[in-house]
C-alpha cells in the first residue's frame, strides 16, 4: 500500500477503446516511480497519444485500474480531479495554447488557475519566458508566433508550476536542435527536482541525450518494453528506474 502510494503512476491491466472501436491500448501494466525520466516511443498509431491522455487525465480507461499519486483515478470523485491535474504539466503535441491570450498569459494560466496572486506570478512567468528565449515575444498572441515559438510557450506553461509529473508529446518536434537540447535540459532540471518526466518522441537521437532515462515502447497498443531493457545507452549495472508486470502481452 505504501509502495503504491509513493508511486507517481501505477497502471494495472489497462485497456482503452474509443466507442465500439477495437482497443487502442491493451493490457498495460507498469509503474512510474518518482523522479524518473521516461521516453515513450512507438510508430505512428501505436497509441502514444492515447497513453499520454490517460496520464494527463484527459481520458478514463475502458478497463483496468490506474492509480496516480496514491489515488484511484477511476473512482476518484470528480471534484478532486482538478487538484490532481494541478500536479501535472502537459506539453500537447498541438500546443493547445489559448489563442486570445498573450504568451505571458498562456504561461501564467496554470498559476492563475491555482490561485497564485498576480504580484507573485509576474516574475516567474517573465523569467520562464526569458529562459525559453521568448522575452521579446511576451505580449505576442499565438497566431503571430512560429510553430517553434508556440511550442516553447507550451513547454513554459507546462513546467511553470513545477509539476510532479511532466507529460510531453513530441515536445521538440518544431524547434531547432540547439533549442531541443536546451528544452531537454529544462526537463532534466525538473527531473532533478523530483518531477517524473514522460516524453513521447519519434526522435531516436533525443534518447541518447538523457543518460538515466528509461524507454517505454508502444507497439500496436501494447507496451513492448516495460522493463527498461531497451533504455539507451544500456547501463545494466544501474538499478532499474521502472518496473512492470505483465505489460508485455
Amino acid at each position: 500500500m505504501n509502495e503504491a502510494a509513493s508511486d507517481i503512476i501505477h497502471f494495472d491491466n489497462v485497456g482503452l477503446r474509443y466507442g465500439t472501436q477495437p482497443e487502442v491500448l491493451r493490457d498495460l501494466s507498469f509503474t512510474l516511480h518518482p523522479g524518473s525520466f521516461y521516453f515513450l516511443t512507438g510508430a505512428s498509431g501505436a497509441g502514444k497519444t492515447s497513453l499520454l491522455k490517460l496520464l494527463y487525465l484527459a481520458q478514463k480507461p475502458s478497463r483496468g485500474a490506474i492509480r496516480m499519486f496514491g489515488n484511484d483515478v477511476i473512482t476518484l470523485p470528480r471534484e478532486q480531479l482538478p487538484q490532481m491535474r494541478r500536479r501535472l504539466g502537459v506539453v500537447f503535441q498541438d500546443f493547445r495554447l489559448v489563442n486570445h491570450l498573450s504568451a505571458f498569459d498562456n504561461v501564467a494560466l496554470p498559476l492563475r488557475i491555482a490561485g497564485v496572486r498576480e504580484d507573485e506570478l509576474q516574475r516567474p512567468v517573465t523569467d520562464m519566458l526569458g529562459w525559453v528565449g521568448l522575452s521579446h515575444r511576451i505580449d505576442a498572441v499565438p497566431a503571430t508566433m512560429s510553430g517553434g515559438e508556440q511550442q516553447r510557450v507550451a513547454i513554459a506553461r507546462a513546467v511553470i508550476g513545477r509539476p510532479d509529473l511532466l507529460v510531453a508529446d513530441e515536445p521538440t518536434g518544431n524547434v531547432d536542435p540547439e533549442m531541443a537540447i536546451k528544452l531537454l535540459r529544462l526537463f532534466e532540471a525538473l527531473n532533478r527536482l523530483g518531477t517524473t518526466v514522460v516524453v513521447a518522441t519519434h526522435d531516436v537521437h533525443l534518447l541518447k541525450k538523457v543518460p538515466n532515462s528509461l524507454i517505454m515502447r508502444l507497439d500496436k497498443g501494447r507496451l513492448s518494453d516495460p522493463t527498461g531493457a531497451l533504455r539507451y545507452p544500456p547501463r545494466p549495472s544501474s538499478p532499474p528506474m521502472a518496473s512492470a508486470a505483465g505489460g508485455d502481452a
Partner: peptide
C-alpha cells in the same frame, strides 16, 4: 537553469494553492 526552477532548488517545493481563477 530557468530562474523559477533554479530558485526552487534552494527554497523547496512550496505547493501552489487557491482557487480564485
Amino acid at each position: 537553469l530557468p530562474p523559477l526552477i533554479g530558485r526552487s532548488l534552494h527554497r523547496g517545493l512550496a505547493p501552489l494553492a487557491g482557487e480564485n481563477a
